[in-house]
Write a protein that binds this DNA or RNA. Structure first.
Lengths: 150, 150
DNA sequence: AACAAATTGATGTATATACATCTATTGTAT
DNA sequence: ATACAATAGATGTATATACATCAATTTGTT
C-alpha cells in the first residue's frame, strides 16, 4: 500500500524525506506483526531478540555488553530486559568468575523451548506478511538499506 | 554498513527475516538522528510529526482522530501528545461546536515558528544521513517498501 | 604499590507506548 | 421518544525507552 494513502499525506519535502518516513512507518507496521505473534508467549520483541541471541551462543553465556552490541535497538536497556527474562525463568544470571564486573547470562531450557516455538511462528508470520515481495526483491531491499546507512 | 556487521549476526533464517530485522534496525538508526535534530527544540519525534500535520492543515483545525489516522505510529497516544504540546504553548485545543465529542486542535504561531525552523534542520539532516543513496535509489527503495506492505 | 582512567552493569527519572476501560455525545432502529 | 449501538476522546496501568548517573571492578601509568 502506498505510503501516501497509509498516512494520508500527499506531498513530501523530498524523496529522501519520504524514504525516512516510509522506513519508520514500515517499522511500526512490522512491530504490530511482532506484537501479535509474541502475545501468546508473553514476551516483548526486545525480549525475543535477546533470547534469540542467547540461543545462538548457547551453551556459551553472554554478557549485558555483548547483548547491547548485538541488539537491534541499541538504546534499549539490556540490563533490565534480562531481569524481566530472569523473573520469567527464561534466562539465568551468575557473576563471571574471571571478571567480577561482568555477569554471565545463559538461556534456560525453558527459554530455549520458548524461543524455538516462538521463532517458528515468527518465521511463518514474516513470510505471510512480506509475501508482496519475491526473494530477489527482498534481497534488493536489503542491499539498498545497507547502502543507505553508508 | 552491512546489517551483519552492525548487529554481529552472520546468519538469518531467510532473506525475509533479514529484511524485517534490517527495517527495524534502519528505523532505530533514523530515530537516533531524529532525536539529535529535535533535542534543541525540546520535542519528541511524535510531537514533531503532529506539529507537521497541524501545519499542513493550518488554519483549519484537526481532531485527535484525524491526527491518529495520519500519524506514522498509529499506536501512540495522540490525545496525550497533544496535551504535552499544549503545555508548551505549541497547540491550542477548543471543543468543537458542531460535535461536542470532538476537540478542535490548532497550531499556535509559536508552534508554527518552531516547526518551520525544526523542519528545515530535519530536511538537512536527512539529506546528510541518506547521502549514500542517489535520488533514483531512494525512489526505488520507496517503491519496494510500498510493495512489501502489500 | 598507589592512583587515575576506563569498563561493566545497575539504577533513578522523566517520558512514551500498548492496551483496556471509562465518560460524554451522537447516530440509528424501533 | 426511547433504547441501544457507535464514536470521540480521556485516563488508568503496566511496561518500555532515553538518558544521566552511580558503584564496583579492572586496567594502565608512574
Amino acid at each position: 500500500m502506498k505510503l501516501e494513502d497509509s498516512i494520508q499525506q500527499k506531498k513530501f519535502g523530498s524523496e529522501y524525506e519520504k524514504l525516512a518516513i516510509n522506513i519508520l512507518f514500515s517499522s511500526s507496521w512490522l512491530n504490530q506483526m511482532h506484537s501479535e505473534v509474541l502475545r501468546p508467549y508473553n514476551i516483548s520483541w526486545q525480549q525475543f531478540n535477546i533470547l534469540r541471541i542467547l540461543r545462538g551462543m548457547h551453551p556459551k553465556p553472554a554478557t549485558v555488553k555483548l547483548l547491547t552490541e548485538r541488539m537491534i535497538d541499541k538504546m534499549s536497556n539490556a540490563s533490565r530486559l534480562v531481569e524481566k527474562l530472569k523473573q520469567k525463568g527464561l534466562v539465568e544470571r551468575r557473576s563471571c568468575p574471571s571478571d567480577r564486573r561482568r555477569v554471565d547470562i545463559g538461556i534456560t531450557s525453558q527459554g530455549l523451548s520458548l524461543i524455538n516455538q516462538a521463532s517458528i511462528h515468527m518465521e511463518k508470520a514474516i513470510g505471510a506478511y512480506l509475501k508482496g515481495l519475491d526473494a530477489q526483491e527482498a534481497n534488493q531491499l536489503n542491499e539498498l538499506l545497507d547502502k543507505m546507512r553508508g
